[in-house]
């Protein structure tokens, strides 16, 4: 869907390029997260996709069309854009803010209004309550929701999100992330997402692009990156709790010893069970709660296997063993 080919950008007056030799693809319906320390060039990469920054060299294609040959304003109207500072127009009501891009695209009034109400509802705001308010009357979390609604207004197939949940407190951030992921399950937008928070990256990303000093140091699915970090930089970025993070991404079902036949009794399990699709982390939690070293693994209401502390330990040793 998005193909970026060997782009480079050096800002005037800078000694070294801000972005160099960057090549990646984002598949349709995926969330591709760019993660790295501040100043690493991830935002620059994002802003080149909708041409807020022009690359010095390289090509960017969206659906096979060369972005650099399109009219920038027309291009941007087909790409949702969410930034940390949100950038709501302070002199317009919330409704008018969400209606911005439909307005630019000259949608009929009724259709726009319909869409605005629908979107506010969708991002968890009450249109009747906030629609006529002005941005400064909203809380940080509400403003972020409006920012997302505004970006979704014209139903763009692609969204660029630069630290979209960065300005709110951790509790609200987690709620916004969860809600956004839920929305994404139905929308299936192609999303480029920038963050400096590795936990957010692992949680939100179908695919991670790890950036340092303007270059891509590693690409892959979260579990690929976690299990085989490319170098010390990635290892440090992932943090000391890499094993626990892996367990968060591993399904209990994948580590269990399955029963050949369903057991007659649930002896030894004592109602200590998890679902096969739940992460191993939940299984660990259950073990600790029940002071047990094993849990039963269910598929629906049928017990299909057993997950033991030893098999989890073996798994962690196996995957974290292959560091760089």
């Amino acid at each position: 869907m998005i193909r970026v080919d060997n782009i480079k950008k050096t800002f005037p007056g800078a000694n070294s390029p801000a972005v160099d030799q960057v090549t990646f693809n984002v598949n349709e319906g995926n969330i591709c997260v760019f993660v790295g320390p501040s100043g690493c060039g991830k935002t620059t990469i994002l802003r080149m996709i909708n041409r807020l920054i022009e690359p010095d060299q390289g090509d960017i294609f969206i659906n096979g069309k060369d972005v650099l040959e399109m009219n920038p304003a027309t291009l941007r109207r087909t790409i949702g854009y969410v930034i940390q500072q949100i950038g709501l127009l302070p002199h317009r009501t919330i409704e008018a803010n969400v209606a911005l891009v439909p307005g630019l695209l000259k949608w009929p009034r009724d259709k726009t209004r319909q869409r605005v109400l629908e979107l506010l509802e969708m991002v968890g705001l009450r249109p009747g309550e906030v629609g006529h308010k002005y941005p400064h009357q909203l809380s940080g979390g509400q403003m972020q929701r409006v920012g997302v609604a505004r970006a979704l207004a014209a139903d763009p197939p692609i969204m660029l999100m630069d630290e979209p949940f960065g300005a709110v407190d951790p509790i609200v951030r987690i709620r916004l992330q969860d809600e956004f992921l839920r929305l994404q399950q139905t929308f299936k937008k192609t999303i480029c997402f920038v963050t400096h928070d590795i936990n957010e990256a692992i949680k939100m990303g179908d695919y991670l692009v790890i950036v340092n000093q303007g270059r891509i140091v590693q690409m892959g699915t979260p579990i690929e990156v976690l299990t085989s970090p490319a170098d010390d930089f990635v290892l440090r970025l992932l943090g000391d709790d890499r094993g626990v993070k892996i367990l968060d991404l591993t399904r209990s079902g994948s580590l269990m010893e399955s029963f050949q036949a369903p057991p007659k009794t649930s002896a030894g399990i004592n109602g200590c069970i998890v679902q096969a699709i739940q992460p191993v982390k939940i299984a660990l939690e259950m073990m600790m709660k029940n002071n047990s070293d094993q849990v039963g693994v269910c598929s629906g209401d049928k017990i299909v296997g057993i997950l033991t502390w030893n098999s989890i330990k073996a798994h962690i040793n196996r995957v974290s063993g292959d560091g760089p």
Binding site: N50, L52, P72, A73, T74, L75, R76, R77, T78, I79, Y81, I83, Q85, I86, G87, L88, L89, P90, L100, V101, L104, G147, R150, A151, L160
Partner: peptide, 18 residues
């Protein structure tokens, strides 16, 4: 005018005059 508002406007496809 707050630069982030302008950035958001630009990012949503407003022209210079808009």
């Amino acid at each position: 005018v707050d630069p982030s508002v302008i950035d958001a406007g630009k990012g949503m496809g407003m022209t210079g005059l808009q």
